[in-house]
Design a protein around this nucleic acid. Sequence first.
RNA 1: GCCUCGGUAGCUUAACGGCGGAGCGACUGCUUCGUAAGCAGUAGGUUAAGGGUUCAAAUCCCUUCCGAGGCUCCA
Length: 628
Amino acid sequence: MRILTIHADYLKFEPKKKALKTAEDVEKKVQEIKECLVIFTAVEKKDEANKDGAVESYLSQIRDVAEQVKTKNLVLYPYAHLSSDLAMPEMAVSVMKEAEAKLKEEGFKVIRAPFGWYKSFEISCKGHPLSELSREFGPEEQKKAPKERKKGSEFSKFLIIGKDGKKYAVTKENWQDCLVWKEKGELYERLKVFVSNELEGHQSEAKKPKHIEYMRRLELVDYCPESDVGHFKWFSNGLLIKDLILAFQEKLAKGFGAFKIANPLLYRLSVPDINKLLGEFHEKDYSWREGSETLILRFASDPGAFPFMQKVMFSHKIMPIKEYEEAICFRKEQRGELVGLRRVRNFTMTDVHAFCKDESQSKEEFEKLCFICQDLMNSIISKGRWVLGWEAVEEFYEKNEEWLIKLIKAMGVPSFFKLMKERGHYYSLKNEFQSIEADGANSQISTVQFDVVNGERFNINYVAEDGKKYPCIILHCSTFGSIERTLCSILENAANDEKEGLLPMLPLWLSPTQIRIIPVSVDNHLNFSLQLAKKLEEENIRVDIDDRQETVGKRIMNAEEKWVPYILVVGEKEMNSQKLTVRIRAINKQKEMAKEELTMEIKEKTKDMPFKSLALHQLLSKRPIFIG
RNA sequence: GCCUCGGUAGCUUAACGGCGGAGCGACUGCUUCGUAAGCAGUAGGUUAAGGGUUCAAAUCCCUUCCGAGGCUCCA
């Protein structure tokens, strides 16, 4: 920002003609102010990234000069000519208006000259040493005051709804006595963990989460100190899992009727829609200056998807209309909040939006999305280790209670509701599919949101029967809030299994190696192993061969370390019979099986799931070691 | 971002003011093996980076970077 301050005996000005279409409406009459400090002001591009900081700096400069020249009369005078790199007019006006309001609160008499007008003015400068000053400054780096509100205190009511639809009102103080805990079963134990985390905060065992050890031991993902914190490097097997999960999501989204789109990662902050969408959450964005622009990396698919849909033509006849995107997102979370893959700064979100014409259509689609997310939680996270959290505006909840309870009963998952008096966000209702993990933490995987604001705000309209345009209700569904976090949950669930005395493993359809063949003698049995592998591969099974010059025992140990679900030791016996000796991880036993029996079992267990071939060389002797 | 703890070979770690040592892995040989570690040898280190204290620093102090826990946060 640049300012020129003049301590004047008087200032007279008169608006002559609008210079901008968006100029404020004012009367064209002469104003005269006696003995005042005139602050000619130009708000610049660089102030856009941190508006609150800009206002703060502006105020402290004004206070400073006003105190020096000992005046309480101020005139804020927009003066674009001070800079060649101006902020957007809306931004500039709002900075000046905020400053005006604050200064008035502080007891100054403030006149603000209208913005966007050609004005004539006459000024008489006092001429003492301090009477003319010019200053240039950037937005103040603001230290965010710690927010007062604590977990849950913005919510007015809490409800627990059993999977049978029974409703219990609870408070922060009495939730432990709730009758719902008489219900038996793991689902309710998990709900209790979740409610406790939400209302009391999570008590951790102060250990590194298990998934961090596993993601490295299985050579899936690793930290990348060369990049910014919270950005990860992916190894081939990790990418295989990621691609499979994305393929699974794509199938679900297409089944839901969505078309796939892709948008840029980078956006211009000077575009009003982008600026609006970001609202007050600037501090979490990666942003930088590029020439006269401020660029930001997107935090979700919305900055791309909403302008995209704004330009798409559709009528009520083809609604609801649906779109989805694999959105690479960036959020500069606070350093101390980052934990392994659970909370990161760069992630892939799979974002589905449904654009609906009215509430009843929205509710119908909302239900469908809930069932899709349920399917996905069960397929990926497995074993039902998840519960539902909800947030709703009280009024919306009361109007739709019956529908919501019916939906919860249909899903058969107990739920915890947080109600708020007023809508603080763009949604009236949202749910969160929370995975409950080995260490008692919960991770949100999916979410479905009922958005009544952005359709109107972004002019995403449909043509109705009467030929007129109306804004859509938008349903947001992040099927995977982040693939990274999903992987975290998968690994934490394996840790959970391990805690319960089982061998940890990945869901079969995600195992990088599904069958490992170990030839007893590489010289004598490798050819047979290769033939067998080829036949199994034809059935869409990922098979590799440990052809290293190691003992059978050692190669089995290595396969177990990598959680290989089926291990075949192949030697003379197998070459001369139709049976295979299979070491099955899921039951921790060996079993004699015919080849067809084995392929049937795997095909049955991976039914309807996407398939991709091996990510690494089939022969272990040809593979590099990614992590010691 | 704040507070606490940590960072030693590719991995897991010992030494905690006084010669940086081991296991795994890698490499070279021997062994050619039937369900969780065959044997021997070799290489591998600016102790995260930089500065300071000391006769002497991986070890004590400061700064920065990276990781974990807690607070805050998670639109």
